[in-house]
Structures are given as structure tokens and as C-alpha cells.
């Protein structure tokens, strides 16, 4: 269970939002909504421990994430705006490196399968620099297919630059994760049909 209390975020010298409270329980799908610039990405970065909150705290399984960082990061997958791809490495190499850094055991077969499921089978050995924007995006998303046992997924605009079928497949995979008892916190500008009832948190209400 992810618990957020009285969270406040400062960017530069501007308070983006304050007093954000949020609880995410197993099986829940939470969407962070709000207009551009309200601090959705900043909130997600605070949730995964990349940023330092100005005030308040984030707890995972009852422990503050800055005190139990390693256990929390073992249970968390964050996909941000940047695709985390190196242009000189192939999608397969990038994916395997990302998985290994996260302590996920992913052999070549599993990684190839994940790339095939996200629709990158044919491109798996090309250098990443020849990929299109949508394909680069998908290399990052392929990690979702290796992270079934990682309970908390924090996704920043996962549907951007994906075509209709890819959006549908990804939505199904997120549904399946929630059905397994996983948790998803994400932002998106698109209306995606989920089977799981989606809870929307409007960040504009907490904006300063």
C-alpha cells in the first residue's frame, strides 16, 4: 500500500501543490489529472523517490520511502518522459540492461518475448537511434512485460505516441496487473477504456 500524506512540492521558488493526500491499495488504478504545469510529473517523481518533497511524506508498506529506499525501489517501476534508451544500443540490449539494473531476472528469451508483445520483435537488434518516437516509447514499456512481480507501477503518460492497437493492448496489460493485485499510478491525456474502475485524483484542487 502506498500512502501519501500532506505532500507539498516546490519548484524553483514556486509552490506547485500542497497538502496532497493519497492512498493506493492493491488492485487500484489511479489517474493523476489536472491541467498542464500543475505538477503531475513532479508528483510522480516524488512518489517514486526521485524528488525530495518540500513537506509531507510518502510511505510504502508503512515505511517512509527515504528510510527504506532499497525495499521500496525493489517494488517500484517508474517510466518517465525520457525513454531511458541509449541510441547506440539495440532495444534488446537496452531492455536487458534496464531489467538487470532493477534486479529483475530476464534472460534473452524473456526479453525477446517482451519486445514481441509490445510489437518490436523485428526491430529488436537495430540500434535505438533508427527507431521512431513511438517505437522508442515502446522499448521502455516493454519493461512492463518483465515486471509482473513488481507491485507498484508509476507511469508518466504511457500512451503518448502509441497507435490504437498498442493503446488497447497496454490498457489490457494494466488491467491484468491490477487484477493480479498490482497497483498503477499514472497520468494520461487520453481517454483509455479500462476494465478496472479508475480513480481520478485532480491535482488542480491542491494547486497553490
Amino acid at each position: 500500500m502506498l500512502e501519501v500524506t500532506e505532500l507539498a512540492c516546490l519548484r524553483g521558488d514556486r509552490m506547485l501543490f500542497a497538502d496532497v493526500a493519497l492512498t493506493v491499495r492493491p488492485g487500484e488504478l489511479v489517474r493523476i489529472a489536472g491541467p498542464n504545469g500543475v505538477g503531475k510529473t513532479s508528483l510522480l517523481r516524488l512518489l517514486c523517490g526521485l524528488g525530495m518533497p518540500e513537506h509531507g511524506q510518502v510511505s510504502w508498506k508503512g515505511a517512509r520511502i527515504d528510510r527504506a529506499r532499497e525495499a521500496f525501489h525493489r517494488d517500484t517501476l517508474y517510466l518517465g518522459h525520457a525513454a531511458a534508451l541509449n541510441d547506440l544500443l539495440s532495444p534488446l540490449e537496452n531492455l536487458r540492461f534496464a531489467a538487470a539494473c532493477h534486479g529483475l531476472s530476464a534472460d534473452v528469451g524473456q526479453s525477446e518475448l517482451a519486445l514481441e508483445r509490445i510489437g518490436l520483435g523485428p526491430q529488436r537488434d537495430l540500434p535505438a537511434k533508427v527507431l521512431s518516437q513511438g517505437q522508442r516509447r515502446r522499448v521502455g514499456l516493454a519493461r512492463l512485460y518483465l515486471s509482473e512481480n513488481v507491485p507498484l507501477w508509476i507511469l508518466d503518460e504511457p500512451f503518448t505516441a502509441l497507435d490504437v492497437t498498442a493503446v488497447r493492448d497496454l490498457a489490457e496489460w494494466l488491467d491484468a496487473h491490477c487484477a493480479r493485485g498490482g497497483m498503477v499510478v499514472m497520468t494520461t491525456h487520453q481517454d483509455v477504456p479500462f476494465a478496472t474502475p479508475m480513480r481520478t485524483v485532480d491535482l488542480a484542487e491542491s494547486a497553490c
Binding site: H73, G80, C101
Partner: peptide
């Protein structure tokens, strides 16, 4: 390079 690519973020999120 890792900073611009976002790989550095992922490394910082590694449990190790």
C-alpha cells in the same frame, strides 16, 4: 549521456 537519456534516473531507482 545517461543524464539526457533518462538512464541515470533509472539507475537511481535501482534497488542496489
Amino acid at each position: 549521456q545517461d543524464h539526457t537519456d533518462g538512464v541515470l534516473e533509472q539507475l537511481l531507482l535501482s534497488p542496489e
